[in-house]
């Protein structure tokens, strides 16, 4: 299978890249790792006239501790995330989820920025970042803005990113003392994408859950916070019963848009979401101590 023809640009700076996006606004697509875009182009589900390859821009691949949080360059690969001691120490769920994206080859190539920008409804990273919180730094030729991750995923394969913007960085906040994290996923047997994946970030203080962010991927049309689940957890001691009750509401936010395909019916997806929410919250609570 062959993609359609396109014009190709390999800018060496963000300025150059964003200029190109402005110039070819509407017909240009950003090529990061390419592992979401190229398969779609081969199937001719995407036929961009222009590709702006940001792989040649230096300085977009880094993991930096700053201001208590961590900043991640958008071209950082899954493999770099999975093996980074900074990520492992600060956001174990991100390291763990990255280690389980697709396969070894894809992890060498796929990037955090690419995953967020593509916003596959079954991608792992969008849910994980959503559970951690933080923001996405989007640059145009003239400006730069931080998009709160809670407002980043808009719809199926659609984000708040404008078509002349490039993600340059993901800013993750410091997690409070007593915070545990976990990502639990049930993968589709052929594509290895998530049928459902649940990311949980839970803070426990004095035996009580003081904060909880839980996000679900795979079940609906985009990664989504499970706010009802979070509300049940907050302010309570995380007993088995509380976790079970919270997990049972994990699919509530996506129940009107549950995916359904030959691999999982809507009903089964909802069930798996609850099961994996239970696993993720329990693991996160255990890690929180």
């Amino acid at each position: 299978m062959v993609t359609s023809n396109f014009d190709y640009f390999a800018p060496t700076s963000v300025d150059e890249a964003t200029s190109l996006l402005s110039r070819y606004r509407g017909e240009a697509k950003v090529l990061a790792g390419g592992h979401s875009l190229i398969p779609m182009m081969k199937l001719r589900l995407a036929e961009p006239g222009v590709l702006v390859d940001i792989g040649g821009i230096d300085g977009l691949s880094y993991i930096k501790e700053e201001g208590g949080g961590v900043s991640i360059g958008s071209m950082t690969t899954y493999r770099e995330l999975a093996t980074s001691s900074v990520i492992q120490a600060n956001y174990p769920l991100l390291a763990d989820a990255s280690a389980r994206v697709a396969d070894l080859q894809v992890r060498n190539r796929g990037t955090i920025g690419g995953s967020l920008a593509h916003s596959d409804p079954a991608g792992d990273i969008p849910a994980v970042i959503l559970a951690i919180g933080g923001s996405v730094v989007a640059r145009t030729r003239r400006s730069s803005r931080d998009i709160n991750i809670d407002r980043f995923q808009v719809d199926l394969l659609t984000t708040a990113l404008r078509d002349n913007e490039i993600i340059t960085e993901i800013k993750l906040p410091a997690l409070a003392a007593g915070t545990g994290t976990a990502y639990s996923k049930f993968h589709q047997p052929a594509s290895h994408y998530a049928i459902t994946g649940v990311a949980a970030v839970v803070t426990v203080s004095g035996g009580t859950c003081t904060d909880a962010r839980v996000a679900v991927t795979g079940a609906g049309d985009k990664a989504t916070r499970a706010r009802r689940t979070e509300r049940i957890l907050k302010g309570k001691e995380l007993t088995q019963a509380v976790i079970r009750r919270a997990a049972s509401r994990a699919a509530a936010e996506v129940e009107d848009s549950l995916n359904e395909d030959i691999h999982a019916s809507a009903e089964y997806r909802a069930h798996l979401t609850q099961v994996h929410a239970g696993y993720a919250i329990e693991q996160a609570a255990a890690a929180a101590g």
Partner: peptide, 29 residues
Amino acid sequence: DTSQCGACTVHLNGEAVKSCTVFAVQADG
């Protein structure tokens, strides 16, 4: 043709990649 099978795996700058999911122009240099 969907990046699943891995038969096309090569090393690009020392790392294994599926060469059916990389444009040759991306390997420039």
